[in-house]
């Protein structure tokens, strides 16, 4: 554990909680892609199956359980409790275009051809692109609520901090995981355009809106 890793995990946790609180407090999931949230629930479910097979640390177990629990709670709020506010007409990204190729790639490029390892690899690849339906929704509506942009910022920062964590681990522990690193780089790159808008607009007190 190093500072980048811990800060990354906390940023990830902050993102998840910001989103849950936003939906709960405003009683609305307008502007939020339910599809991205389903993908994240799928990511956590397939990645953390090792909860059942191996124990790493209390921290590790606790965070995994919280991430999974929050992911399903978010999906529940969007598709059940506040279904009436869900922006289904704009949330039209075709997730099969992500899940099918990512599933195929997980079968082809993995560390070990075993069920748990393939599912873990699938989750890493899927996480790297799971935000696309959300970014697609924002590009369609042309705007995002400020609280939604804080959520996206924390989520992007999380993976960027993991990149520093991997550099740290490579130098000090000789550890590297090529699958996680490549997917993490892809994931971080997807947020770059958003980071730019966040810094130039949201941090200056303006609402995030895209030119028509």
């Amino acid at each position: 554990m190093n500072i980048f890793r811990l800060a990354g995990d906390l940023s990830h946790l902050a993102a998840i909680i910001i989103l849950l609180l936003k939906i709960w407090k405003t009683r609305s999931c307008a502007g939020i892609s339910g599809k991205s949230q389903i993908l994240f629930a799928l990511v956590f479910t397939t990645r953390y199956l090792d909860l059942l097979t191996s124990f790493i640390s209390l921290y590790n177990t606790f965070m995994k359980v919280v991430y999974i629990g929050c992911a399903y709670a978010t999906v529940y709020l969007i598709y059940m409790k506040f279904k009436a506010t869900y922006d289904g007409n704009h949330d039209t990204f075709r997730v099969e275009f992500l899940v099918v190729p990512v599933g195929g790639l997980a079968f082809l490029v993995n560390h070990d051809f075993s069920p748990l390892e393939i599912l873990w690899t699938f989750s890493i690849y899927l996480e790297s692109v799971a935000i696309l339906p959300q970014l697609f929704l924002i590009s369609k509506t042309g705007e995002a609520e400020t609280i939604t942009t804080h959520y996206l910022f924390c989520l992007g920062v999380y993976r960027a901090l993991y990149l520093f964590n991997w550099i740290w681990r490579f130098y000090f522990e000789g550890f590297f995981d090529m699958i996680a690193i490549v997917a993490g780089v892809v994931q971080t790159i997807l947020y770059c355009d958003f980071f730019y808008l966040y810094v130039t607009k949201v941090l200056k007190g303006k609402k995030l809106s895209l030119p028509a």
Binding site: R5, D9, H12, R47, D50, S54, I56, S57, N60, M63, K64, Y67, H111, D112, E117, W120, Y162, N165, F175, F176, D177, M178, A180
Partner: peptide, 10 residues
């Protein structure tokens, strides 16, 4: 090569 059995990262 990486360790594939224990995943300590989240």
């Amino acid at each position: 090569e990486t360790e594939t059995t224990e995943k300590d990262e989240l």
